[in-house]
Design a protein around this nucleic acid. Sequence first.
DNA 1: TATTGTTATACTCTATAACTATA
DNA 2: TATAGTTATAGAGTATAACAATA
Lengths: 143, 143
Amino acid sequence: MEQVASGLVRLTFLVQSVYAEVGCGCELTPTQAQMLCVLREGPKGMAELCGVLGVERSSLTGLVDRAERSGLVVRTPDPTDRRAVKVALTEAGDRAAREFHEQITSRLAALLDDLSPTEQVRFSRSLTRIVTAAGVPLAIGPH
Amino acid sequence: MEQVASGLVRLTFLVQSVYAEVGCGCELTPTQAQMLCVLREGPKGMAELCGVLGVERSSLTGLVDRAERSGLVVRTPDPTDRRAVKVALTEAGDRAAREFHEQITSRLAALLDDLSPTEQVRFSRSLTRIVTAAGVPLAIGPH
DNA sequence: TATTGTTATACTCTATAACTATA
DNA sequence: TATAGTTATAGAGTATAACAATA
């Protein structure tokens, strides 16, 4: 039990550090990387984005503000609801998101390099089972 | 590759949320929980603690300030070096650290409940192999 | 001169509560 | 009244640079 818990915490640290490092290389904070990855699915309203990211609206306002200031996203008015806005990736944001996604995917997969092919498959399956059982959403990102 | 990366990120999510939740129940922020766990080994100097936690000294000053204000740790002068201080757990800090450690250990181990005993052993072994290969230090998180 | 730790400053991320505008 | 989003405010966590005291 002790062993497993320690392993899980250490793995979490490892993944976080890779995530931060890759993000840094793309000039993205981990939170920005996460948001940009979500926005690759398409433009989203603030409330919707809050739900996916698991943050409060006031927090998201700041996140979008900073990302917008950095030219990664834009707010556009929602034609169907004048209270609402849609947050969408800019071209630069899309480029950064793609780059981040590509790199994080290969960097994280490489963490399993020391396992045999069979072990890799088993590990990956168990991983999926664990997070599925716990109901963790699919979106890539921390928190 | 995509699969593995997604699984790793989702697992990281999951572990972080459990970590935060357990910490919250012990009135600890995740960072405080981590620091307190490290200090269970014994008192440490600021510089040493920085190394283990992977933060800058100025950051640690704030962390220790807040933990000290909450009565979790104390700074005591180092008799062998008048520049230095030792950071040690108070009784309350030790109690919180124990409680956190106990709970996080069982909560994280429980994440593997859906795997068969064989799969649990395999998963745990692979976990250890991955973090060992990557050189993730042991001291971080629960021991 | 090098090391230990703090201070000053600035930024990101987060939340709660109060607010505006629209539905 | 309820929902969408922002503003005001506060606090944790992080870093860099400048500084003090001691080795």
